[in-house]
Design a protein around this nucleic acid. Structure first.
Length: 109
RNA sequence: AGAGUAAGUCAGACGGUCGCGGGCUACCGAAAGGUAGCGUGAGGAAAGUCCGGGCUUCACAGAGCAUGGAUGCCGGCUAACGGCCGGUGGAGGCGACUCCAAGGACAGUGCAACAGAAAAUAAACGCCAGUUUUGGUAAGUGUGGAAAUGUGAGGUAAGAGCUCACAGGGAAGAUGGUAACUGAAUUCCCGUGUAAACCCCAUCCGAAGCAACAUCGACUGCGUUUGCCUGCUCGGCACAUAACGCGAAUGAUGGCUUGAGCCAUAAGGUAACUUCUGGCCACAGAUAGAUGACCGUUUAAUACAGAACCCGGCUUACGGCUUGCUCUUUUA
RNA sequence: AGCGGGAUGGUGUAAUGGUAGCACUAGUGACUCUGACUCACUCUGUACGGGUUCGAAUCCUGUUCCCGCUG
């Protein structure tokens, strides 16, 4: 992972201006940037569950982004939000959702 | 076989491919850092934040009183505790066993709705004597959570622990025990409950919390020194430059993990626990917060659940396995 | 993470340990030619689990949920 989004204002900018693709388990916001590297932020609200479930969801999202990252087409700011349905899901299903969203936005080829 | 009760233990392991945090070593690099190798990386509750302690800052000569808070049978253990162990007393269970905020109602104040004569200085109805308001008396009176020792006999004008027997309770305290307590002889019949109401007694307690706090640099702000308004004081203005001090907010680094530590043996103790000797540190230290994905083998390995300054407890959530003991039923 | 406060009908809000009250809402009836207003009646309760007490919304304790402060 190249870089992470940390500031609240970056998240707000993406929620306001970025393209939004909701899937079954996650919601993906994305926007092109001119930094030359891709930055990703993961959020996981309290509605997902306790600390164990939230950590698990973040790991699944991070892993699926890692498997997709060699196929990136340019540099983007991406925010992935976990929905409450993600608890108990396997890596395959999360990966499928993120892949579908990325393809639709043209992030990966 | 079923039901129950108590204690203990585990929380997956191994191999392969990719990936993440910290440490050590080597090499490259001016440095930041990078590469390679080695080894390591969540719990029994990490949770709730309910107690206690360490650590840090602030306050503080010392002692006492008052106010406030906490605890409350006895002995022991512990750094300390509201914790643990052993006992005493009480409650529950056929039993194994479990549970108990368990001091004081002869210091004082309060409360006890409704019902009931009366809820605490008992006497309204009643009974008896006497005769028109006086004495004696407490047997009886739909209540209530609680009613003034209970039952029987004697006794009497009527009655009454007034007397006796049995039962109950209080005082007293032999004996045993470190103590809580146990409760023999003797003696008395003596006005309720509530302290998780205020309170009294005994013991303990300064406050806040790692987002504490310390260090560093930069920006900006304020104050003083300085100049001017004016001879002085107060006040106001200027800070372009220099020095010193302070600080709400901001950033970075430290605090940060070796500790009342873990393991094994032996000894003391009923036990909690303590001590000796040896060994280990290969026992997490992240900072938007690291443990994952896929495949295979095996297994009882599934549930509850993720460290955030650190320890000792308590409480709550929850899967499996083992062992001791108790009760019931059936068979031999 | 560290602290502090709270939970009462559908909503808002009272209540010294002793019958849980008020307003709005909802329902039924009356009034009216009909509706509204008004009047009468009714329904719906102390977050959950234990304990102290004769008796807990209240006192004590555990759990759940919500809110606030520090950032």
């Amino acid at each position: 992972m190249d870089n992470t989004l940390k500031l609240n204002k970056d998240f707000k900018r993406l929620y306001y201006r970025g393209n939004c693709i909701p899937c079954h388990n996650v919601v993906v916001y994305a926007q092109k940037n001119k930094l030359g590297k891709t930055r990703v932020g993961l959020t996981c609200g309290k509605s997902v569950g306790g600390a164990v479930l939230r950590n698990r969801a973040k790991r699944l999202m991070r892993e699926s982004f890692r498997t997709l990252s060699p196929r990136l087409n340019g540099s983007f700011d991406i925010v992935i939000v976990a929905r409450s349905r993600i608890s108990g899901k396997k890596c395959d299903e999360v990966l499928r959702d993120i892949k579908y969203a990325f393809k639709k936005m043209g992030i990966i080829i």
